[in-house]
Design a binder for these strands. Structure first.
Length: 227
DNA sequence: CCGTGATCATTC
DNA sequence: GAATGATCACGG
């Protein structure tokens, strides 16, 4: 067993560490941590995120807390193609279907999660073996006023529909920068919910996800990528 | 069992 | 090809 990497004590230290990882391959970093590298992610979908958490000294594990609790910073790996464009949406958090109606944007999980994010781009070109894929240069980000307004608008619309008991009317098509999609072991999973009249029902668990167009813009602003 | 880490795979 | 809906592994 390798010694665990200690939690960074400041944003500056976190940034220094992630800079040292920039340009290194996933295989190299895995080796320093004593981890084996999967051939593909079919049975290891969160592997890259967990690798970077260990490498940087994240503390929250799978709890509903920021990855770097002391700093209030969330870390997100983001798979990018050769042009630097994200290839997947970004999971934000699960939706508390029971209580979302008694919450406002200011108190929402989404706002808290996205208040401070360390984006770590990861080369995700399918033709490159996983172990050879490189870590990009990271970006410590907080939403701009406009970005927060956009997130808030989507959150209010989508949370409003859930509060009305209209959960099953929500599809991934709704939302400009953020969407609601299933977040479950499989399509049969069920969670207790109450509709507007307090009647008990069950529903497929859902989560909030950031659209590619939104994260693409975050990266584009910072790295001046092609439009 | 639930939330977090996401990517896969089918549909559009 | 892109986007939505489905899915896999793990820690607590």
């Amino acid at each position: 067993m390798m010694d665990p990497v200690p939690a960074p004590e400041s944003e500056a230290e976190l940034v220094r560490r992630v800079r040292e990882l920039s340009g290194r391959s996933l295989g190299e970093v895995a080796e320093t941590l004593g981890l084996s590298v999967p051939e593909h992610f079919r049975h290891a979908k969160g592997w890259v995120g967990q690798l970077l958490e260990k490498a940087l000294g994240a503390t929250a594990s799978s709890r509903a807390a920021p990855d770097f609790e002391l700093l209030g910073v969330e870390m997100k790996t983001i798979p990018i193609d050769e042009r630097g464009i994200p290839q997947e949406t970004t999971f934000v958090c699960t939706i508390p279907l029971q209580t979302v109606h008694q919450t406002d944007w200011e108190q929402s999980r989404v706002r808290k999660k996205l208040a401070r994010v360390l984006w770590v781009p990861i080369e995700a070109t399918r033709s490159v073996p996983v172990a050879e894929r490189r870590i990009g240069s990271a970006l410590l980000w907080s939403p701009s006023f406009e970005q927060e307004q956009a997130l808030r608008g989507d959150w209010e619309q989508l949370a409003g529909l859930i509060a009305c008991g209209d959960i099953d009317s929500i599809t991934g098509h709704l939302g400009t920068v953020m969407q609601v999609r299933p977040k479950a072991a499989n399509a049969k999973a069920r969670r207790n919910v109450r509709d507007e009249d307090g009647l008990l029902m069950t529903a497929l668990p859902r989560g909030f996800y950031l659209r590619i167009s939104f994260t693409r813009e975050i990266l584009r602003e910072h790295f001046s990528l092609p439009i």
